[in-house]
Design a protein around this nucleic acid. Structure first.
Lengths: 281, 281
DNA sequence: GTCAATATGAAATAATAATTCCAATCCATA
DNA sequence: TATGGATTGGAATTATTATTTCATATTGAC
């Protein structure tokens, strides 16, 4: 009765590993399954788990009892507890960061806020990015003779990074800046054999939209990075990405956009190398 | 039947928040409880949850139905799914991303690699940033008449962001770009009452170093963001930050630098507002 | 090869939990 | 303040799920 029943997942794990050798075949089978698929144990029903592991429900219960639990249900508690704790680590850290940031404890809080916003944005885009769109965009850009990069204001840093990286990769590109006021002329040079990366977020810089429209009308294919399907950029684009950036204190992060931009650039570089190699071969 | 039922937690959350105002009292009560204690919903039974939230089990079911689910059980699935996805602790998720990136499965891997690099950089800097240095930098910059921003190549996007944000905050600043070749003259205008943010990473752009040296010799205080104590920038700076950016495929992330830059900028903005207010009062 | 001990499968049973239903209550409106 | 509709509480019902039981199979010792 007061047998030493494992109360936390780590102890349980060790116990199972220790006894592994001496366990009967089916019990060993469920033991292995349990350690490999702890989530399934946490959420499944005795019957569903047993089925997945290829044993009978009763075996599952015997397994639990052999470990000192009085049934499957109490064994399951341990697996659930693990999820609760696990989960809290990352989320809570972020939440703590955000909380500290929001309660405004000095300037450090501002920094924490931006780190939290950036982290959130990254994990969002990591989930949301569409592989197919990404491939399409890479294809499209890899075929271009010249890649035009178009962005103003808040998005301009991203554009300047893309231009820098493309240059490093020896890919011909043209950053459309407004400094010299020659944008219209620059855009005039683009042909359908080129391509454009256009970046703009709400409130969309009118110049970006205008220039995107006019370059689209010349038949130049456009890859857009923007923030919603209502974005004016979306309608001009062959491929477009929706990037939801978290904000802090009214300043939106650009880390997700940046990561996407870097990935696009490097992927285009790789694609070109591959194509070049094949052509030679 | 084919009502749009929220399938993931975020959608569900938004849906609930949207309708909150129009929900009856008890339903609203359980809605609030659900968003506050998502783990309890994931693991509890209808009865136990209802008890914790102070309502009847039937209310819980009505709540689920009102959201379009056909019962509590299907609502609970969403809460469980959330745990599963988030479950893998942050580090594990990162490790998975990195692994996927390294095994090189297509272009998606490149994207994953950059997201992983950015996340790593962020969590590193979050740990490493020195509060005292941060405060010093903010003080120094807040007092400046004009903030000069100095960075080339890979760091230039950060500089351009700083310039943009400072502009938005109505803080006088001057981005030192090389376009017109008038950098030396620009630098000549700086006085000890101004300040500089200089950013450079190995291999340090010679122009950045040269310009930083010459501006330092004029007695202008410098805040440097760089990557090691051996950096030539460090010796010229009043305050300097060491930012270790992770890289992927030879391209280093700039997300940590970016977060720091944003934080510095906004903190300076706040500091100025505060000081301004005090002066008036 | 036989026997006993152990392990396993399958179905019956008990327990638990979700859902439904109906009466009571609350609330807005005339 | 009376009336109809919406909301809620609580018990009854239904469903699902864990557990037990027992027959059968397997294993190892003699």
């Amino acid at each position: 009765m007061d047998e030493r029943v494992p109360r936390d997942f780590e102890t349980l794990r060790t116990t199972i590993l220790d006894r592994r050798a001496s366990l009967p075949k089916r019990i060993a089978q469920i033991a292995a399954y349990a350690l490999d698929n702890p989530d399934d144990i946490a959420f499944g029903t005795a019957a569903s788990i047993a089925a997945s592991a290829g044993v009978q429900p009763s075996t599952l219960i015997r397994f639990a009892q052999q470990l000192g639990f009085d049934g499957f249900t109490s064994l399951q508690q341990v697996f659930r507890e693990r999820l609760r704790e696990r989960n809290s680590s990352y989320d809570e850290r972020l939440a703590a960061l955000r909380a500290k940031a929001e309660e405004g404890a000095g300037h450090r809080a501002i920094f924490d806020g931006f780190v939290a916003a950036a982290s959130t944005s990254l994990s969002d885009i990591s989930r949301a990015l569409n592989d197919v769109h990404f491939e399409e965009a890479v294809d499209l850009l890899a075929k271009a003779e010249t890649i035009y990069v178009l962005a103003k204001r808040r998005s301009y840093p991203v554009a300047s990074y893309i231009a820098y990286a493309l240059g490093k990769l020896k890919i011909r590109n043209q950053l459309i800046e407004s400094a010299a006021g020659l944008n219209a002329e620059m855009i005039g040079f683009a042909t359908p054999r080129d391509a454009v990366i256009a970046i703009s977020f709400s409130p969309y810089a009118p110049a970006t939209i205008e220039e995107t429209r006019s370059i689209a009308e010349q038949g130049v294919p456009i890859v857009a990075i923007t923030d919603s399907s209502f974005s004016p950029l979306a309608q001009f684009a062959k491929v477009w990405f929706e990037v939801a950036e978290a904000d802090f204190g009214g300043f939106r992060s650009i880390s997700a956009t940046m990561a996407l931009a870097m990935a696009l650039t490097v992927a285009v570089g790789e694609k070109r190398r591959d194509t070049g190699r094949k052509r030679k071969a």
